[in-house]
Structure formats: structure tokens, C-alpha cells
């Protein structure tokens, strides 16, 4: 086993797993391999009445962007309290990666500039395997800028109908902010990660991280309002789970509104 750091979760495929991936091996080996991986699912809920989403000041390229109802996306709560845009990812070091995920991973992650916002607002990317594909569906030029620690910063103009393909070379421990220097209201986050084991909660607050190695793993939860999603149960947003081959479901996590009232400046 290579001595790897936390951000470089690499595949340490055992002979069993490799056998399954290539269609080789005996049924016993295949069964053993199938028992090596399990999903983690969970749901995160905002336990209260969310504040109305503020309408953002749209005072640039008004002819185009002014026609959209652009609102704050920093706290997205669904009708039944589900909290969207929470990053949940493996924090443990030296985590095996299921070979199936390496084969099935999408070639690229796409960010669209559409209706004068970033779509999607949050995303993860597996640095080694995926490209960051940026497009512009708006009738005005857009800008995408971010500066990950230890990696190349981007400050790209995306012309109308244009695109760009970027790469992240260094996995990060926390998501990286994306801004548009033309339209200050636009914001987004991306987590360049060293494995596929990173997820984002959807509109209903649920998330799924598929095919994790079974056994005890530590996870990190992060949200743009709180950064580390620090709760009494999850100090600094960290929690441990034992992944089982049949899958593991976390109890619904209810978060007090007070933790999201962090000062926007800091």
C-alpha cells in the first residue's frame, strides 16, 4: 500500500475487486467483491422556517440579467425542510475506490452560465478523472473565477455561446468559491476532490455516496453559510459511519436555524 495523504484517495484494488471489474474470477470472488462496497444515504433538514430568499441586486448587464428573478442561493430549503447544497464527503485517509466507479465516472462536470447565475450552484469534481467544462448559455459574456489553494487560479471570460475546459490538479479539503467578476451576485462552489466519494444534498436534503468501502469511515459536512457544518453531534462537521455492504442510512439530521446565521462577511 502506498502511503497516501488524505486528499489522494487512490484505488488500491485488491485482486478480488480487479477480478470483478474485468469479468474474471470465480463466483466466490465476485461475491466477496460485492460485499466490499456499500452506499451511504442520508438527509439533512433545516429545522425551522427558513427566511425568505433575498432578491439580489442586479445592476450590471441589466438589459439581459435584469429580467430574471435572481435570489440568494446561500440557504436553499425545500418545502419539507430539506437543506440543499450541503457537501458531504469522505474525510478518512487511504480509502479504497471501487473499480466500477473509475469506469463509470462521467468524463466531465459542467458548469453553465444560465439566466445570469451559475448552474448548478454547487458541484464536486474528481480531479484525476474529470474535466471542468464551462459553458455560457446567456446572451452576454460571462466570467468564471476561482483560486484554489496550491492550484492554478482561473479567471476566464466565456464569450456568448463559448466554452472552456479546465482541470483541477490538486484535491482540496473544502469547496472553492466561484465568482463572476462581471456580475457580483453570481456565486458557486466546487469541491475538487481526490475520489468519487463526495456528494451534495439535493433539493429534498438527501444525498447518496455510492460504493464506499465497507467499514468505519469519517465524513465531512460543509455548507457555504457555516463552512464546516459544526453541530453538537458533528463537531466541525465531522462524523463517523460504519458502511455496510447492504447500504447504510443515516438518521435524518436536523439542523438548528441559528447555526446558519453566521455573519456574511466572515
Amino acid at each position: 500500500m502506498r502511503d497516501l495523504n488524505r486528499r489522494q484517495f487512490v484505488c488500491r484494488s485488491s485482486a478480488v475487486a480487479a477480478g470483478v471489474a474485468t469479468g474474471l474470477g470465480t463466483p466466490t470472488m465476485a461475491q466477496a467483491a460485492a460485499n466490499r462496497w456499500g452506499d451511504l444515504v442520508g438527509r439533512i433538514v433545516y429545522d425551522g422556517t427558513p427566511p425568505p430568499r433575498k432578491r439580489l441586486v442586479v445592476d450590471k448587464d441589466v438589459a439581459c440579467c435584469g429580467k430574471f428573478d435572481i435570489r440568494d442561493e446561500s440557504l436553499m430549503v425545500g418545502p419539507d425542510g430539506g437543506l440543499a447544497n450541503v457537501f458531504v464527503y469522505v474525510r478518512s485517509r487511504r480509502v479504497d475506490i471501487c473499480p466500477e466507479l473509475e469506469q463509470s465516472v462521467e468524463k466531465r462536470v459542467t458548469l453553465d452560465n444560465r439566466d445570469c447565475i451559475f448552474m448548478p450552484h454547487c458541484m464536486t469534481i474528481w480531479c484525476e478523472k474529470q474535466e471542468y467544462y464551462i459553458v455560457n448559455s446567456d446572451p452576454v459574456a460571462q466570467n468564471v473565477a476561482y483560486a484554489p489553494r496550491g492550484d492554478i487560479a482561473a479567471n476566464i471570460v466565456i464569450p456568448v455561446g463559448g466554452d472552456a475546459t479546465w482541470r483541477f490538479r490538486l484535491a482540496q479539503r473544502t469547496p472553492v468559491a466561484i465568482v463572476c467578476n462581471y456580475h457580483p451576485w453570481e456565486s458557486g462552489y466546487i469541491l475538487p476532490f481526490g475520489s468519487p466519494y463526495a456528494a451534495i444534498t439535493g433539493k429534498d436534503g438527501t444525498f447518496r455516496i455510492p460504493k464506499l468501502p465497507v467499514g468505519k469511515l469519517e465524513f465531512q459536512a460543509w455548507h457555504e453559510r457555516t463552512e464546516y457544518l459544526d453541530t453538537p453531534e458533528w463537531p466541525k462537521g465531522r462524523f463517523e459511519v460504519t458502511i455496510k455492504p447492504e447500504g447504510t442510512t443515516l438518521p435524518t439530521v436536523k439542523l438548528a436555524p441559528a447555526i446558519f446565521e453566521k455573519d456574511a462577511v466572515f
Binding site: P159, D163, N181
Partner: peptide, 16 residues
């Protein structure tokens, strides 16, 4: 480190 973006071509981006 500033809002002044790259306007020219770069690997992966055609530029404006």
C-alpha cells in the same frame, strides 16, 4: 488576483 480576466486564448479556453 484581480477581476481583470484573461481575454486571450489559453489551453482549454478559446478566449474572447
Amino acid at each position: 488576483g484581480t477581476p481583470m480576466p484573461a481575454g486571450g486564448p489559453a489551453p482549454g479556453a478559446s478566449g474572447v
